[in-house]
């Protein structure tokens, strides 16, 4: 396994895992360290409405993000974690179709728009699934972009004249 690729993969897992872990840390700390728990809820308030009726509960307390956001973070983390196991054919097929990012977002957009307009109320499981569906495709493009970044840096370094 290429060292740079491993570092990118580990870095992505660490970052996405940290964010996902944060959503569970808030309810976990509520009893033993309420100030830190409140702080974590506050941190996630910039990216989520945190409506209690739209969130899953753990230890009888809501997670720091709603069910849709949880699906997004969990989907990305699990997908990125399993990325080394994907077949190369699948990876190449996905990478050549960046429009899939938008296609996979359609259920999420439709559900969110309907909910915003008050047309329907979706169960938490459906919201979670729409987040997972969208996020599951993203690692293919994420790692491709990182690989491109690495190639660009390498060619820039190679072009530099020797001292």
């Amino acid at each position: 396994m290429n060292r740079t690729q491993s570092l990118f993969w580990l870095g992505t897992i660490f970052l996405s895992g940290l964010i996902l872990a944060g959503t569970f840390l808030a309810p976990l700390l509520q009893e033993k360290n309420p100030a830190w728990s409140a702080f974590i809820y506050h941190l996630f308030s910039s990216v989520c409405h945190q409506k209690v009726e739209r969130s899953f509960f753990w230890l009888d307390r809501p997670l720091a993000v709603c069910s849709r956001c949880l699906g997004f973070y969990a989907g990305f983390f699990i997908s990125a974690l399993s990325y080394p196991l994907w077949s190369r054919r699948l990876v190449r097929w996905l990478e050549s179709r960046p429009s899939l990012i938008l296609v996979a977002a359609i259920p999420l957009i439709v559900d969110a728009t309907g909910g915003l307009l008050g047309l329907w109320w979706t169960p938490l499981g459906i919201r979670l699934a729409s987040g997972i569906l969208w996020a599951a495709f993203l690692p293919a493009f994420w790692f491709r972009a990182l690989a491109e970044l690495n190639r660009t840096k390498k060619s820039a370094t190679d072009r530099k004249p020797l001292a």
Partner: peptide
């Protein structure tokens, strides 16, 4: 601490927004 954590989360989401933007405006 808020700045550090919020920057990490926003950078992650912004990067994904960049991927979406590339798929729209490639």
């Amino acid at each position: 601490l808020s700045l550090l954590v919020t920057s990490i989360v926003f950078a992650f989401l912004g990067a994904l927004g960049g991927l979406i933007g590339f798929s729209l405006f490639k």
